[in-house]
Structures are given as structure tokens and as C-alpha cells.
Design a protein around this nucleic acid. Sequence first.
DNA 1: GGCATATCGATATTCAGATATCGATATGCC
DNA 2: GGCATATCGATATCTGAATATCGATATGCC
Lengths: 211, 211
Amino acid sequence: MEPTISIQALQRMPTYLSLLKGKRESGTVYVSAGSISAELGLVEIQVRKDLAAVSDGGRPKVGYVVADLILDIEKALGYNNINDAVLVGAGKLGKALLAYDGFREYGLNIVAAFDADPSVCGADGSGKPILPVEKLKKLCQRLKVHIGIITVPASAAQAVCDMLVDSGVVAVWNFAPAHLRANDGILIKSENMAASLAVLSNHLSEKISKI
Amino acid sequence: MEPTISIQALQRMPTYLSLLKGKRESGTVYVSAGSISAELGLVEIQVRKDLAAVSDGGRPKVGYVVADLILDIEKALGYNNINDAVLVGAGKLGKALLAYDGFREYGLNIVAAFDADPSVCGADGSGKPILPVEKLKKLCQRLKVHIGIITVPASAAQAVCDMLVDSGVVAVWNFAPAHLRANDGILIKSENMAASLAVLSNHLSEKISKI
DNA sequence: GGCATATCGATATTCAGATATCGATATGCC
DNA sequence: GGCATATCGATATCTGAATATCGATATGCC
């Protein structure tokens, strides 16, 4: 194992995981790559290759043991050790993410939010504190936080990113519509809605023009 | 033109657009692929190839005319004609998107939200109506809405997707952590946070294990 | 126990996108 | 006007992911 899974394969893992957990609930013990692919609308080959990258528990004629496969995937994803994260930018989106507790399932725990505007600081409805951004570095270092979530306007995003990296963060989840740069070894994963909209919009304009 | 731009290139367009608009504001008239790449931290080649896919206005020694380039990109993306959209699932995320008015800039206008739960229906703080899901099809057909946004739980996502397609939607923006299927010609763009988290988490577990 | 079959794993092949190379062209200086 | 240079566009190579092919192996029936 440990053959560095491709990004795309990694991104499909949560889907497998969710399907497998459903199967486990309903008491299914074995599952084949073929049945998974049929249920998810993917091609069998891809499922098999993805699973091969994280597990070697597949047996011909039988398939995979559901419970084992779940553990293998979770291990590959690192969901076992819950990761603490900080969030910077307590605007609308920031607060929505802060209040959303579904991330725990994926091993993510937001411990605190930060904002440059002191008027929004204080306790949030979610129970998580919103702190002045000056306290960011200290808290990250004290709690050994390695994940930072950016929900500030685009213009401030790069500065916040630098600040996070300086505080010891090695994985950044960026929701600002900006292209961020950081040294090697720092992973930046952008949730760029503008980029998605570009794809949708382009598809639509091609589609409509054909009508 | 019209050489079907690659998805990845499309997704980079909003970044270019935002940079270019900044330049236009500040009165810059010409811009070269090299300077763009430097400012965004990309490689020059890629910028040139991306721009070549949407514009032929580049002149040696001079570069591109900022204003023309903006128009070319917007034309390729179809931002000129504002697209109406409906949103299904007026939960936390749904309401946040509904209230966010920044999408207009990208040519997207959410006209109404729908929910299966009648108790959340009515007027929203945003001024957009939240309607019972039974009215979805009629409204889509009447207003010729072609974009649907899904913010329901994963278990309901596929059903909602089918319903949208049946109502005439050809581009689906999916925020549910589920893999959706639809006929050819229907574009499904998923904003899968779980997938992103998988990448972050995996990076982190590899990183930490090395320490 | 042997054979048919479901299913996996390993090894090609193909494809799309990213990167590199090189020639072409417009500008500006001498 | 001619030459140096910035910058573009076209073509070629490389890389990584998706897809296809085929042999290997475990099960269960006869």
C-alpha cells in the first residue's frame, strides 16, 4: 500500500464510503466492484482500480468484505484521527460552515473562527468562539492546528493564507474566489464556486445556442 | 473560435477575469500572458494557451487589450445573458446561497427556492420566495429556467435531480454529497465538500506521518 | 476432485491536459 | 530602413488518469 492515490480517486472515496456504510447498516457483508459501479453509475474498471489503491482485501468470486473496505478507505483518507481546524472570516459563509456539524464525520473539527472585525467576535450560536485575528497564530501553535479554512473576501485571501502557513497550517481549504499560492508541502484546495459557475454557464450557452 | 475549451481551462477563466477587471479599473490598457502568469502564480504557457482558446486578440510585443480580453472571456463563459436558476432545498446551505447576491456577477440569478417541508415555505429574508416543491415543474417551464441548484440531503438528491431534468433544466449544480446521474446533454457539476475534505485529510495524514 | 464462472489484479492502450520548443510577427531604437 | 527583442501562435512531447484487455484465483456445482 501507500502508493499515493491519485487526487481524482481520492475524491471519489467519500462516495464509496457513503455507499458502503449504507450497506453495512443493512447487514451486507460482501460487495463486488461490479455492484458498486452499477449503483453509483460509474464504470466497473474505475471502481476496481480505485479500491485496489487503498485495499488488497478483494477476493475473486467473493468481492470485498464491506467492513474491511470501510476501514481501509478511512485509513487512506486519515479519517481515523480527527483533525482540528481553524476558520478565518466569520461572514455569512464562515458562520454557515461553523454551524454545520456534518464535517465531524469526515474527521474535521473546527475549533474556532477568527475575524478582523472585532464587532463580530464573541460567542457564536454554534458554541464555537469567534476570536480577533491577532490571536490566530498563538492558538494554532498551542493546539497544533494544521488545517485552515479561508472564508474572507478575495482581496484578503492571500494575506490570510500566508498568516495561516506562518502559524503552522499545512492544508488550506479556500472558499475565496482567488488563486492562492504557497510553498511546496502546503496543500491548497479551493472550493471555487466561480469556477463551477463558469463550467455551468458555458455549457448552457452552448446548449441554448443549439436550440 | 468555438474550439470547445477544456473544463480545467474554463475553471481558470474567472480568475483571469477578476484580475483583468482589476486592471481595467486601474486604467491598464495592454496586458501580456507573461505578466498575468506572474501575478497569478501560474506558468506562462498555460495562460497563453487558455487565452488562445477564447480570444485571438493577442499581438506580439504588445499583448492583449484588457477590455477586449474581458469581453472575449465573458462571451466564452456566457456571462452576457443572465441565467435564471431555481434552488431546491431551503436548509441552512440553501438559504445561505439564496441570500448571497454575488452570483449575479457571474450571470446567475436565483429566482426562487423550493422545499418539501411546507413549514419553511414563504418569503425569505432575501426577498426570494420559498415554494412547495410541487410547484417546481410549472414554474421552471413558465420561466424557461435551465439551471437547478440542489441543496437537499444526499438521500433525496437523485430524485430532485430527476425532477429538475423533467422540468427542463439542463445544468445542475449539486451541493449534496452524492454522485448524480443524468442523460447525456445534462451537465452535472458537483460541489462536493466531502471530496475536498478527502484530499485535505489525506494530505494531512501523509504529512503528519512524516514528522 | 475437476470444471465452469464470477471476480479480482496486472499489464497495455488511449486520451486529455500540461509543459516544452521553436518559428513568426509587431514594435521601437539606432 | 534594418536590427534587436518582446511576445504571440503552432506544433511536439511528456505526464497522469481513464479505459481496455487478459490472465489468475477462489468458489460451488456436478
